[in-house]
Amino acid sequence: MRRILITLLALCALGTAATALAGSPPDALRLEPPKGMEAAKSPVDFPHGRHTGAVADCTACHHTWDGKAEIKACGSAGCHDQPGKKGETAYYTAFHAKDTNRSCLGCHKTAKKDGKPAPVSCKQCHK
């Protein structure tokens, strides 16, 4: 019985350590454009924790993530790191494209149609 208890405690400790190493997603983020890129509106304080249960999985937003590597910010090199409002790699597009559920605004518009509370006007996100 003692061996079983020790084994269970060791497994719990390993699980806790693995979770700590993997890290957990932050509850809140501040969305700001990459260095060298200017935004016309204020940064957005993003309630990340509120969104983790609202989407099927992390790749709904982090669409290039392989599930293993560290998740990069939207404005990271090779993602949405281009200035302007046009094209898939534009920083603005990652948040404002209206025709896709991979953008904040697109997903919020879909949620709004489904009767769920979701901000869709500029001032609701850009305080």
Rank of each mutant, 00 (worst) to 15 (best):
R3G: 01
L5P: 00
T7F: 12
L9N: 14
A10D: 06
A13C: 13
A13F: 13
A18K: 01
A18N: 01
T19K: 10
T19P: 02
A20T: 07
A20K: 06
A22M: 12
A22Y: 12
P25V: 01
P26M: 03
P26D: 09
P26Q: 06
P26W: 02
D27F: 01
L29G: 01
L29A: 05
L31H: 03
L31W: 04
P34Y: 12
P34A: 13
G36D: 09
M37N: 02
E38I: 00
E38F: 01
A39T: 00
A39E: 01
A39W: 00
A40T: 02
A40C: 00
K41A: 06
S42L: 09
S42W: 06
P43T: 08
F46C: 07
G49A: 06
G49F: 07
T52W: 03
A54S: 10
V55D: 01
A56Q: 11
D57M: 11
D57H: 15
D57K: 14
A60K: 13
C61W: 03
H62I: 08
H63R: 13
D66Q: 11
G67L: 05
E70A: 15
I71R: 14
I71N: 08
G75N: 09
S76Y: 12
G78R: 08
Q82M: 07
Q82W: 02
P83V: 09
P83M: 09
K85I: 04
K85N: 06
K86T: 12
G87Q: 05
A90Y: 05
Y92H: 12
Y92M: 00
Y92C: 00
Y92D: 09
T93D: 11
A94S: 12
A97H: 11
A97F: 07
T100I: 04
R102K: 15
S103I: 03
L105E: 02
H108I: 05
K109F: 02
K109Y: 03
T110P: 01
A111H: 11
K112V: 12
K113Y: 02
G115D: 14
G115P: 10
K116M: 10
K116S: 02
P117L: 10
A118Y: 05
P119C: 10
V120F: 12
V120E: 14
V120L: 10
S121M: 15
C122Y: 11
C122Q: 11
K123T: 15
Q124Y: 02
Q124E: 15
K127N: 15
K127L: 14
